[in-house]
Write a protein that binds this DNA or RNA. Structure first.
Lengths: 310, 310
DNA sequence: ACCCCTATCTGTCCTGGACAAAAACAAGAT
DNA sequence: ATCTTGTTTTTGTCCAGGACAGATAGGGGT
């Protein structure tokens, strides 16, 4: 049935490996080894694409391509994540049990039950604890499950979509704070994950901020323009673990430069939590609690120096 | 202030023009004409990137690159859209007036007022008319405004985010139909626009379907797997005008092949409305009304032949 | 007006070379 | 043991310039 074949551009799309990488791997390691069509163009059979996907996943977990290429497929499936030791894994005293219940509902693809379970927990814990102690670790767990191949892409999408809806619902029901500090929330291009941003938005709104959400993947220059037009005091970005960490410092520096000095720049999410060198003029918020704290500090500061001359 | 410079990969990201295209244009037309860094790599100054953005926009409107390259920048700004004549431009009897009001609120970046205006119109017209006669033409207009450069990216994001939230709100408030036909909704990779899909979801849910939403950019193979797991009867995709039309037939054929024959495949959105050759086994739904009709046809068919053996 | 044919235009793919940033490794110091 | 520092290997990205197929425009005939 599945003798589907792929062109190099569809492989690029499906695996996230650039054409350059696909060609240079072929040259260096002898894999992938696509056939050629009448025109000499590469034709990748489905099983090689599958193997490439697997290799990509393992690389994201810290493995090196050179080793992976020479490893037989059966052995690849056995490999475990090989991360740089995370020092501050969440203590996870209470959650584990509770998280499993929720994860199970996702695994069973039972949307309605999952949504109901979320509402129940929201009512029980209250918003701050619900977001910080349930949703945040939950989405972390989903990330872990996805990394280790226990979750497929569509299951992650399913989870994201349902969670997102319930969060949006919650945010809409919060009283608006037109007078609070104005915060612009978005992500940079190539960062599609919006869940972290929405969690932050719900907490910040609850704590009295006036949030302006632009969704995901706003170009740098547009963030700067929007910050000006909306008269925000803060631009808050979110980076997931999946975002290429190397690029973050340069991007933040670039944005910082494009932004008026009076506008604060906050960067949060798992992607920045373990960042080595801190950037000048950028607030790194490793956790949601840090974000709330930053907001309180801002409010405090504003109270002391109410109005700067324009 | 803005003597920012760009590498070829950041230009690719910011303009959507591939590295190959940027290099071949330089070779053929002499533009862009980037400087080189110490290592011989291309360095694009900000003004050239700006011009590239403009050229890209004009190309999307039907202009040809060869002409554009030799046109001075001042003349470029004057060019009007040069589309293949759209036959069926929306009649636009009532809306124009009403749409302008909404567009104006976006232009003024007044989120709260815009949301309120939407709610008001929803209450007045009822959901079906609200979505089909207000939201659909409105988002079309936003697309037009964006094409002609009257809307910036961040304004489009702002509009999308607000509209999306209100639609999600509406959908959540509809009674679920666990017994209705199960429909999987998503978009293909590279299609980030989700608004059309959400409009469809709201109408289909209202008409008794049980919708399973996966958000945007689900890989083909995951759509197939998800369709199976969720036992859906229909997979519905949405294509915006921005989606590269050439690829659509091949993609639909590929997905059709990966899907069980008993699962229907629907494709809707402005991107497929003007598609030339119809694909085998794929339902092309040019408008939201067509989508509703397709659902009714499905329900009818199901009533006649209630249960196929599994 | 329409259709068909030809010439031009244009994006994508190819090869094979080069190099710097990152990672791994090795050696020595605290 | 743990932390610096220097060296080697690995690996992604960039470059040049050639080739070609599919799209588009232009022209001529019906």
């Amino acid at each position: 049935m599945n003798d589907q074949v792929y062109t190099i551009s569809s492989v690029e799309r499906d695996t996230g490996l650039s054409k350059d990488v696909l060609r240079v791997w072929e040259r260096r390691y002898g894999f992938p080894a696509p056939q050629r069509d009448v025109h000499g163009e590469r034709i990748y059979p489905a099983d090689q694409v599958e193997r490439l996907r697997l290799i990509k996943r393992l690389m994201d977990q810290g493995h090196r391509p050179g080793k992976l290429m020479t490893t037989p497929s059966e052995a690849l499936a056995q490999l475990r994540p090989r991360r740089l030791a995370r020092k501050a894994e969440v203590p996870a005293d209470r959650p584990v049990e509770e998280l499993e219940t929720l994860l199970d509902l996702i695994r069973r693809h039972d949307g309605p039950a999952y949504q109901q379970a979320l509402s129940q927990r929201l009512a029980r814990h209250g918003l701050p604890s619900f977001v910080q102690d349930i949703l945040a670790p939950l989405s972390h767990q989903v990330g872990v499950a996805w990394e280790s191949g226990r979750f497929a892409v569509h299951e992650e999408h399913f989870f994201t979509e349902l969670t997102l809806r319930m969060l949006r619902q919650v945010i809409a029901s919060l009283p608006p704070c037109p007078e609070g500090p104005r915060i612009l929330l978005t992500t940079l291009p190539d960062e599609k994950h919006v869940l972290g941003l929405l969690m932050a938005e719900s907490l910040l709104t609850l704590d009295g901020a006036h949030c302006i959400a632009l969704g995901t993947e706003t170009p740098l220059s547009d963030i700067a323009r929007a910050a000006e037009i909306h008269h925000v005091e803060v631009v808050a970005l979110s980076f997931s673990v999946a975002f290429p960490a190397r690029q973050i410092p340069a991007l933040l520096r670039q944005l910082r430069q494009a932004l008026p000095a009076c506008v604060e720049l906050w960067a949060g999410g798992e992607g920045v939590a373990h960042l080595s060198r801190p950037a000048d003029g950028v607030e790194i918020l490793a956790t949601l609690a840090d974000a709330r704290e930053a907001l309180h500090a801002l409010v405090e500061k504003r109270r002391c120096a109410p109005l700067a001359a324009p």
